[in-house]
């Protein structure tokens, strides 16, 4: 038997008996892979659970810095992309090439949209001085301690004003002015944290909240980026007409991966954005 024993079926590997055999193996493989993904994220969820149970107040306070609206929009975007991914599988199963390509394209577009909004959120935070790591603490000093005119402060999200602008327009030229103003204006709302008696530990724990926030959303974001790469590759194959009702495994597997990414976000959203 030669290396390419299945001449009529270009995508059937030699060591499988038939396409169903190959599909079943691939499906089991991707599910096993999803299991490793679940466990991979579990470490972060565990860290989150530990620190939230230790410092519920800190988490509640810190979560105010996250923009619920952007989070909700991003959730919707991901759910839409999940729908189109599932739809794409259906198209592939039914041999609808055009619809398949369209659905894949929409999924990719949603993924880019998600990352774009994520970028806005990140850049806004970094602009405010909330960055992961060593220096967070010193910035938080400015943010939560004595509000200084030259130092940007934490913004407690206010209804409307400003935030939507960032979300929609992506113009953050006015961020600094806005943030400064916000810090000054709302300094009184941060009162408990300005108490000199409550320094040190709470600020450290705030830093840990943001560390966890960045790790969780960052790792999730990396998965979205990987998903984009895979989906673009599949789109190019779909355009070349590789997929048939008997050979559509890659579409199905990539969609499963994409749903898992969505699924993780479904948990991240309330855990990070909806603490009150």
């Amino acid at each position: 038997m030669s290396d390419h024993g299945h001449g009529d079926k270009p995508f059937l590997a030699h060591h499988f008996e038939d396409e169903d055999h190959q599909f079943d193996s691939g499906k089991l493989g991707i599910w096993a892979f999803l299991v490793t993904e679940v466990l991979f994220f579990s470490g972060l969820f565990c860290a989150y659970a530990i620190y939230r149970s230790m410092h519920p107040d800190v988490f509640q306070y810190a979560a105010q810095a996250l923009d619920t609206k952007l989070g909700a929009i991003n959730t919707s975007v991901l759910i839409l992309s999940s729908l189109t991914a599932a739809w794409a599988v259906r198209n592939a199963q039914l041999g609808q090439k055009k619809a398949l390509c369209l659905n894949l394209a929409i999924t990719i577009a949603c993924a880019f949209g998600f990352m774009g909004i994520k970028y806005l959120e990140y850049s806004h935070k970094i602009h405010l001085g909330i960055i992961p790591g060593n220096s967070t603490e010193q910035y938080l000093d400015g943010a939560f301690g004595e509000p200084k005119a030259e130092q940007v402060a934490f913004v407690v999200p206010q209804e409307g004003e400003g935030e939507e602008q960032h979300a929609a327009g992506g113009e953050h030229a006015d961020d600094a002015a806005h943030a400064e103003g916000g810090g000054q204006d709302h300094a009184h709302e941060l009162a408990p944290w300005n108490d000199p008696a409550v320094d040190g530990i709470q600020k450290q724990n705030l830093a840990i909240f943001f560390a966890i926030y960045y790790c969780m959303t960052g790792l999730h974001g990396i998965h979205v980026l990987l998903g984009i790469v895979v989906l673009v590759w599949l789109l190019s194959r779909a355009l070349r007409g590789h997929f048939t009702p008997t050979y559509y495994g890659p579409i199905d597997f990539a969609a499963l991966y994409w749903h898992l990414v969505d699924l993780i976000w479904i948990y991240l959203f309330p855990l990070l954005y909806l603490i009150n």
């Binding site: 089991l28 466990l39 479904i266």
Partner: peptide
């Protein structure tokens, strides 16, 4: 999550072993 798993991810119509895998992993988590 269940909606996504069972319908989008076909788990409701799929081999039982795949459900065992994913829910088993959740047990370990």
């Amino acid at each position: 999550a269940m909606l996504v798993l069972l319908i989008f991810m076909h788990l409701g119509f799929d081999k039982g072993f795949h459900s065992l895998l994913i829910f088993g992993s959740l047990l370990f988590v």
